[in-house]
Design a protein around this nucleic acid. Sequence first.
DNA 1: CATTCATCCTGCTGGC
DNA 2: TGCCAGCAGGATGAAT
Length: 265
Amino acid sequence: MPELPEVEIIKRELTLVLVDQQIVSLEIIDPKLKVKPDDVGGKLIKNLIRKGKYLFWIFSDQSSLLVHLGMTGHFLYTSNREHLPYQRALIVLSEGYLSFCDSRRFGKMQYLTMTEREKVMSSLGIDPLSEDYSWDRFEQLFKDKSLSVKNFLMNQKYLAGIGNIYASEILFLSAIHPEKRVSELSLDEKRTLYSSIPVILNRAIVCEGTTIRDYHHSDGSSGSFQYRLRVYNKEGVPCDVCGTEIRRLKISQRSTYYCPNCQKR
DNA sequence: CATTCATCCTGCTGGC
DNA sequence: TGCCAGCAGGATGAAT
């Protein structure tokens, strides 16, 4: 559900609310979540870090809480204690309450030591909006690979943060067919791809994310990048560059949208 | 390495 | 109106 831009917006919102606050207590409603109330009760939140679609709440003792929103996870910050639909956890803060809701229960919360967090972070690929994102590193990622460029973009161990919506949008902007093998990309195509990735992600951040069904801000409002989508969810709609109908195909069981004229094999 | 498929979950929509 | 198939911003692990 939330991809890098949505998680970045959530990070900014939560940063305002959480930094320098103390967790008074934690109530776990869904036992799938790998945190115990004693792990985080009394901890002081010093910082929030995002890598790809992962969020880490860093405590003053350097331990942390990993949060991944899965497809439908979201937070709601309220001044009163709430009991909400699909609520999986309630974090009682020194000021206010933060509810974690997640209808499909693909979201994750896990308490981590500093070593464990470093291990999780190093298992993730390059975040395209971080300082680690450089042409040299990007180019290295293609070595010894032949998978489709769509699957390449989606795999979090190569690049961290791109999901199903933005993969299609990035490939449209790059004019690259999603099934093209990365081993067959020309230098020009790789360079175009390299620059398109942060362009799309940053545009989506400016629009505060894409709200199609589940994603909402922690105050309940929506993003607006759904109005800027050019191919995602637009099967049969004329391409706004050339007028050809947008097509949908499945790559690894995921819907993929592209313009057959602008994105040739 | 890579693909395909199943699995984890729940809710919504569209077609009949 | 009711039912069922298929779909959904994700990730992982097994089998091939």
